[in-house]
Amino acid sequence: MSLQGIWTQIKSVLVFAWFYGWLAVVREPFWLVSSLLNPLSIVVIMTVFGGVHYMSFGLLGGLAMAVSSSGGFTIIGDATYLRLELKFQSMLINTRLNPISYTLGLALSELTYALPGLAVFIILMQLIMHVPASLYLLIVPILTLEWVTASMLGFTLSTLMNDVRYGWSLSGILGFLLGTLPPVFYPAYLLPTPYVALVSPVSIVSTVLQYIVLRVNYPLTLIRLSIITLLAETVVFTILALRKSRWRSIR
């Protein structure tokens, strides 16, 4: 691909994020608030029953869940909606936007939409936990890996949907199965083995964040395995999404 072609793709990805992400933030704030309510409500319950100590776990879990749910898994519903309900994907086939850029644009628009919610969690973390700025050098790359993993998994699953309602439902189910049930909002050491955290990219990220920010005494092997698993999931789900994100339909 020529430099001009690469620039066209980058420009398209950014315009897609503005078009489907930023404009939604500005014009649909109610959705934004409602998408924040799930993780925030868990934080509130944990604080009520566990005090400020568990509030810290809740905020880190909420941050991890907000990245994967609002920033990633919602792509299932949105990609299905754009493809089946609006036929927007069919219109984009006849443009210079290639399938990879479409996937990235959609993922970036989901992240853009989630950014105000993430900002709320980060502000709360700063107010309550006083996280040193230097730690964000570790936190941001880990959250980025989580966003890529969740987005690519979400997009891959969206290609299997044949009804918009299933897309919205599945994003909610995945949010619960991967973002709430495993040790995301609570420490993994409460389970018979903390290695259960490896079952979900969200609990992996939450566990690593607890290790970095709260200095929870997890085995170093768990942290190393967490990072390796997250990297592997990022690569595998990205390859899957790129293989699935072809324009040509078989049905």
Partner: peptide, 30 residues
């Protein structure tokens, strides 16, 4: 593909954008 334009049956515009934003973005994608 880039030399064609297609408006499919039952296509709908994204409901929270304006006509200008819709057409402008589509042209950038083109």
């Amino acid at each position: 593909r880039p030399r064609l334009a297609s408006i499919p049956q039952e296509a709908k515009p994204i409901y929270f954008v304006t006509p200008y934003e819709l057409v402008f973005s589509y042209l950038v994608f083109r």
